[in-house]
Amino acid sequence: MAVKALYDYRFEPKDTEDKFHGNQLVYVGWDQHLMFCAPHCVPLPPDMPFGALVREVLPGMYDSHPDWAQVNWGQVEWIVDNKPFQPDMEKGLRDQGIGHKSLIRFRTPGLNGIAGAAS
């Protein structure tokens, strides 16, 4: 469908990648941990290795959660843009299909939030 308008209604999208100073926006959500009320949004270099995201970015978001220290990274299930995902820790984000405004979710089996209540 299209907007009904009195003239040709076309405007530039507000959040194209070129506006983020060399970064791309990436969204990150930790399933079953709703103490963090919503997924996060961060600008990251497209060539950042996935391993750097895990080691350097995620702790700043999540290490205040009591489950964080117990995460077994070998067992984590990743979902990128709603599809199961096997990350390559060495490869850059973009090179493995994580683009501007991609959504990265992860699940930590056995760790289901405070009191197991998805918090």
Binding site: D31, L34, A38, A118
Partner: peptide, 26 residues
């Protein structure tokens, strides 16, 4: 860390699946 927002209502994506209060609705 800043939250992900809904493109339409602009509220942080805090609402859960209609049939599952433990899962964020994406």
């Amino acid at each position: 860390t800043l939250p992900m927002l809904c493109q339409t209502c602009q509220i942080p994506m805090a609402f859960t699946e209609p049939d599952d209060p433990t899962q964020i609705c994406y």
